[in-house]
Computed example of a mutant assay.
Amino acid sequence: MARRENPEINAGSMADIAFLLLIFFLVTTTMDVDSGISKKLAEKIPPNVKPPKIKDKNLFEVNINRNNELFVENEVMDIKDLKDAALKFIDNGGGIGSPKEGESKGTPCDYCNGDKDPSSSDHPNKAVISVQSDRATEYGTYIAVQNQLLQAYAELRNKLSQKRYNMSFTELEEAFKDSGRKDESLRKKVQDIKDSYPLIITDLDPEGTK
C-alpha cells in the first residue's frame, strides 16, 4: 500500500497577512498620551540677587491643602468660583503699572474693566498670582485650579483682542501660526495682547511632610 504524504501548508501568504494585520493595528490603535499643562517653570533666583518686593495688594494667594480644599486670600472658595475671582483681581486696574520698555514711568490701565479698587491690584502687569499646594494634594485638584486661572487670562485676552483687532486672541494666535510665524503685523498684535495681560502665575514649593 502506497504511503500517503501530508500536503505542505504554504506559510508565505499567512506571513503576509500577519504583517498586514500588524500594520493595520499600529495605524488604527489609539495610544494613551500623557496630558498636562504647558508651562515654563521659573528659574531659581541666584543667592546674590534679591527678589523684587511685591505689594500685598498686587499678590493673589491661592492655597490648596492636603484635603484638596481651596483657600483664596485665606478664605475658603469653591474651585468653580476661582476664575471669576482671579479675573476680578487681574483686571482691577486700581493704580499705576510697571513702566514698559523705553518708558520712564508706568501709566494707569486704560483698558481694564475692573472696579479700580485701591486695595486690589494696580495693573495687570503687576498682578501676581501665587499658587501653593500641599505634598498630599491630588494632582487632579491642582490641574483644576491651574485651568481656572488660565481661563481667566484667556477670557481677558480674548475680550481685549476682539476690541482692538476684531478677532479673539485664540483666532489671532491661530492666524499667526498659519502664517508660519512670519507675519510681523500679526506678531506685534499677539505680543501686544500678551503684554497687556501678562500671564504671571508663580508656583511655590509644596508644603507638607517630605
Results as ranks from 00 to 15, higher is better:
Ser104Ala: 14
Glu75Pro: 00
Ile96Val: 15
Asp117Glu: 06
Ser133Glu: 10
Asn125Val: 04
Gly140Val: 06
Asp84Asn: 06
Ala127Gly: 02
Gln132Asp: 05
Ser133Ala: 15
Phe60Thr: 04
Glu75Thr: 14
Asn74Lys: 14
Gln132Tyr: 06
Ile64Asp: 07
Asn92Phe: 04
Gly102Val: 11
Val72Ser: 04
Asp110Tyr: 11
Gly114Arg: 10
Cys109Asp: 14
Asn68His: 02
Asp78Met: 08
Arg66Gln: 11
Pro51Arg: 10
Ala144Asn: 12
Glu155Trp: 05
Pro99Phe: 13
Ser98Gly: 05
Asp91Ser: 01
Leu149Gln: 03
Glu75Ser: 13
Met77Val: 09
Thr137Ser: 15
Tyr153Cys: 07
Ala152Cys: 01
Ala152Ile: 03
Lys105Tyr: 13
Asp81Tyr: 13
Asp110Ser: 11
Tyr139Asn: 10
Arg135Ser: 09
Asp122Lys: 09
Gly93Phe: 07
Glu103Leu: 08
Lys100Gln: 12
Glu103Tyr: 08
Ile79Asp: 00
Ser120Arg: 12
Gly93His: 02
Ser120Cys: 05
Pro108Arg: 11
Glu101Ile: 15
Asn68Val: 02
Glu61Tyr: 12
Ser133Gln: 09
Tyr153Phe: 15
Asn147Ile: 10
Ser121Met: 04
Ala127Pro: 02
Gly102Ile: 11
Asn113Phe: 12
Ala154Ile: 01
Gln146Arg: 13
Val128Gly: 00
Gly95Phe: 04
Asn113Lys: 15
Phe89Met: 02
Thr107Gln: 15
Asp78Ile: 05
Asp110Ile: 09
Ser133Lys: 13
Lys159Ile: 15
Asn158Val: 04
Ile54Thr: 06
Ile96Phe: 10
Asp91Glu: 02
Asn67Pro: 00
Lys53Asp: 14
Asn158Tyr: 02
Asp56Val: 14
Leu70Gly: 03
Ser98Asp: 14
Lys50Leu: 14
Val76Lys: 15
Glu61Ile: 15
Glu69Pro: 00
Ile54Leu: 10
Pro124Asn: 04
Leu59Arg: 14
Lys105His: 12
Cys109Thr: 03
Lys53Cys: 07
Gly114Lys: 07
Pro99Val: 13
Val62Phe: 12
Asn68Pro: 08
Phe60Arg: 04
Gly93Asn: 03
Phe60Trp: 06
Gly140Ala: 10
Asp122Tyr: 06
Asn63His: 11
Pro118Arg: 12
Ala85Asn: 12
Ile96Asp: 08
Ala85Phe: 07
Pro118Phe: 13
Asn113Trp: 09
Lys105Pro: 00
Glu103Ser: 08
Lys57Pro: 05
Gln132Ser: 12
Ser121Arg: 04
Val131Trp: 02
Glu75Arg: 13
Gly102Trp: 11
Gly102Pro: 01
Pro51Trp: 07
Pro51Gln: 07
Ser120Val: 03
Tyr139Cys: 02
Leu149Thr: 03
Lys105Val: 09
Glu75Ala: 13
Ile96Glu: 11
Ser133Ile: 15
Asp91His: 00
